[in-house]
Amino acid sequence: MVTQDEDVRSGMPQERILITGAAGIVGTMMRERLRRPGRLLRLLDVADPGDHGRPDEDVLTGSVNDAALMATACEGIDSVIHLGGISRENSWANILQVNIDGTHTVLDAARQAGVRRVILASSNHAVGFRRLSEAAEGPDGLPADSTARPDTYYGVSKAAMEALGSLYHSRFGMDVTVIRIGSCFPDPLPIGKRGLATWLSPDDAARLFESALATQEPDYRVVWGVSDNTRRVYSLAEARRLGYVSHDDAETYAGQLADAPDASGPAATYVGGGFCTAALGEFNQL
């Protein structure tokens, strides 16, 4: 582990950001996009993210449930981007252990280390049983702070993450930004036509994370993590107040999805799409 004193002697970066889940889909895309002169990224995952030896990176391998490891990971850190966890529906036991208990371990390690800012990667599935028709009731779409209506155990874990973030802001003054991500992939194609509304491009994701990292006043806020898609149903008003400006639109991929099936039934009614009919507690790739 590189200490702050060693940073000073070696001229290494002074801003330090811990990214949990750094070897996952979003973490891998953010690793490249969040590199900046004068910034060190500390990368943590149960899987080895590879490419060791960069002077602007510090790699740790292990679980967010390991309190001792998280205490070490948070030493000298300015901000935590918490992406680690199970990213699909799974058994209640696994969801509870990794997503809920793991988030608590991350937040408490950050608190004890004096970390001033945490960004939590939530999901649209925290409000999956909100009706898409509700989006029409707001001036810019479904408000980012709509109360929880989870569609799965996974969605419950994201609602719990949001509640824990609120607690740690209110109790300890930590700056907490919750990003309810729609779907963040290199392109919206894996999601089908639903992705034309939910997509958060990798470049826009980096822009949104940078906006959250730049906040000056400690607060608790919930924002939608989506690009400014033509078919967007989620409000970007809250994210724009952070300074986020989307440059991308999933509609550029619409032609490639022309033959994809249209949603029907609950998937066409609720924000959570197919998650609203998936079997609870079973691993799925929806």
Rank of each mutant, 00 (worst) to 15 (best):
82 H>G: 02
123 S>C: 07
147 T>Q: 14
250 A>I: 02
279 A>E: 15
14 Q>G: 00
184 C>A: 09
154 Y>H: 00
155 G>T: 02
52 H>Q: 05
226 V>D: 10
81 I>M: 13
33 R>I: 04
159 A>Y: 10
237 A>T: 07
122 S>H: 01
224 W>F: 06
1 M>R: 08
236 L>H: 10
132 L>G: 05
246 S>M: 03
181 I>Y: 13
221 R>Q: 04
87 S>A: 14
220 Y>W: 14
145 D>W: 08
191 I>W: 09
151 D>C: 06
179 I>Y: 07
174 M>P: 03
217 E>A: 11
113 A>M: 05
169 H>E: 09
237 A>Q: 08
280 L>I: 01
31 R>F: 12
166 S>C: 14
122 S>W: 07
254 A>E: 11
144 A>T: 00
263 A>G: 04
90 N>Y: 15
174 M>Y: 08
104 H>L: 14
145 D>K: 01
135 A>S: 11
281 G>A: 03
181 I>V: 07
202 P>I: 02
163 A>T: 13
214 A>H: 02
3 T>Q: 04
93 A>Q: 14
266 P>E: 13
47 A>E: 13
8 V>Q: 13
82 H>P: 01
26 V>A: 11
20 T>L: 03
153 Y>K: 05
135 A>D: 06
94 N>E: 15
230 T>N: 06
74 C>N: 05
105 T>V: 14
217 E>V: 06
272 G>S: 07
119 I>Q: 06
112 Q>T: 09
149 R>T: 03
59 V>G: 06
170 S>K: 15
276 C>E: 11
223 V>N: 00
92 W>S: 03
264 S>R: 08
282 E>S: 08
63 S>G: 04
46 V>Q: 14
247 H>Q: 15
22 A>C: 01
140 D>M: 03
255 G>F: 13
153 Y>T: 04
260 A>L: 08
37 P>V: 06
242 L>I: 02
157 S>W: 08
205 A>V: 00
21 G>M: 07
254 A>T: 01
131 R>S: 11
36 R>D: 13
123 S>K: 03
231 R>L: 12
239 A>H: 01
58 D>E: 15
146 S>Y: 07
214 A>V: 02
259 D>E: 14
205 A>W: 11
39 R>P: 00
42 R>P: 02
36 R>M: 10
194 R>S: 07
256 Q>D: 12
120 L>N: 03
240 R>K: 07
130 R>Y: 08
145 D>C: 03
198 T>Q: 10
231 R>C: 10
241 R>W: 02
166 S>E: 15
174 M>K: 01
49 P>H: 10
102 G>Y: 11
209 F>G: 04
257 L>I: 01
140 D>K: 05
162 E>F: 08
75 E>G: 06
218 P>M: 09
30 M>A: 13
86 I>K: 03
145 D>Y: 08
170 S>G: 09
118 V>K: 03
178 V>T: 01
180 R>Y: 12
97 Q>M: 12
134 E>G: 00
153 Y>W: 15
211 S>Q: 04
76 G>P: 00
87 S>V: 04
185 F>W: 14
12 M>S: 15
139 P>Y: 12
62 G>S: 10
256 Q>S: 12
83 L>Q: 09
113 A>P: 00
218 P>F: 15
113 A>S: 07
47 A>M: 12
221 R>S: 05
76 G>S: 05
267 A>Y: 08
38 G>K: 02
108 D>K: 05
65 N>S: 12
18 L>S: 00
113 A>I: 07
152 T>Q: 15
230 T>L: 13
39 R>M: 09
130 R>V: 13
4 Q>D: 15
75 E>M: 09
